[in-house]
Nucleic acid binder design. Structure first.
Lengths: 217, 217
DNA sequence: AGTTGTGAAGGCCTTCACAGCG
DNA sequence: CGCTGTGAAGGCCTTCACAACT
């Protein structure tokens, strides 16, 4: 639909775009209307020329000699990332982490709306978590179909995660954000992102022991 | 102390090493004693030649024509990453997310031992979270000094995170794992990693809308 | 025969420098 | 004059192909 003809945008660019978007949202809330690649770069910790190259993939979004209009740029990025529609998501696992995620999601996360929470454990069924009722796994495919859900979060113990992933794939989920500390195996057309702070602790440990530089945006 | 003379190892290699370590730990628990770059690659979703190149930075850890000895390799990686010592860590923020982290950390995370939990809110002081007592922020510098803490986790609202980061830096912390959805500004010699699943949701959203390929290990 | 370790080739991304515009 | 947008240069990492070794 956009003007661009499906040119392949670098993965690293896509990795940074949400950072820009978040920063611009904050600026917008604070009433800042104009910015530059330099200011933005300082705030997100990215080199200005990288930012300009990144944004260039999506068109000429700034004005030479002037800079970028904050609301316009934020909107353009939201468009590029597909954030202007609402994404229904589901969560599997209503334990401590799952509950914290659900609560947090309801409060702070826009455009990714939880439409279902599921757990294998019958004792948890019927509980209210993050404004939703925990339901049995059997209900999952129906909810996915009904809301046309494409993304799911997994917050179950490591040993159950792969089985849950299978259920999700079978239900038609195309993106999985896993909080379980294992590598999931899924078909090629399904995306898996892992959120595992333990791995980050280990990486930090290395860089602290071997101080060159480092850090992550 | 190791043989190597502080050669700069690619950041991407270090990013993957904890993945290998985790996979090898699981294999070791399951009594698997031998493996190969191919098998390991399948399990962690990384190309075998990448794995061999990565491991080569740390010496000749395998046997040609045979493969790798699982416990030996795991141990070598642990050594390389600095995981053979215990890393005392602290946590700031005893809300829902902080509590979930503390509980999880106590149960599952080895070698990163929580030695202090802090919160600004007096109402939370004295509470038991993850086997520790929540303490006021004033106690933080003392605990850092006493245990020689180098790493900290931040699980406070976005608006408080930068202030907390300042306190941590002042106390001598060298690595911060932040769960707050902002970019922290810290001195050059302090590492910041962000764990923000919201950004991952946005990245996934893009790749689902524009399916080329993608995914993250 | 089979798998590692590694130099060379290739590709992707960042850095640089400046042309292009406001 | 200032900042963006962008081609060219450079660097880092991955991919490839194979020699080295068990």
């Amino acid at each position: 639909m956009p003007l661009q003809y499906k040119i392949k945008i670098p993965k690293s660019t896509i990795d940074r775009m949400p950072l820009y978007h978040r920063c611009l949202s904050i600026m917008e809330e604070n009433g800042i209307t104009e910015t530059s690649s330099q200011v933005l770069g300082l705030r997100v910790g990215v080199d200005p020329s990288v930012i300009r190259k990144d944004l260039a993939w999506f068109g000429e979004l700034g004005k030479r000699g002037v800079g970028y209009n904050v609301p316009y740029l934020r909107q353009a990025i939201a468009e590029a990332l597909g954030l202007n529609k609402d994404w229904p998501i589901i969560l599997v696992g209503a334990g401590k982490l799952g509950s914290a995620l659900a609560d947090h999601n309801q409060k702070y996360v826009k455009h990714f709306q939880l439409v279902g929470i599921f757990d294998r454990d019958p004792a948890k069924h019927g509980r209210q978590v993050g404004g939703l009722t925990v339901r049995p796994m059997e209900d999952l495919p129906g909810v996915v179909k009904e809301h046309n859900v494409k993304m799911a979060m997994i917050a179950v113990p490591a040993k159950e995660a792969q089985a849950v992933a299978h259920v999700l794939v079978k239900a038609g989920i195309k993106g999985i954000l896993s909080f379980a500390p294992i590598s999931l195996s899924v078909p090629e057309d399904v995306l898996v992102y892992n959120s595992d702070y333990h791995l980050d602790l280990q990486r930090m440990a290395y860089f602290i022991d071997n101080r060159f530089d480092g850090g992550v945006g």
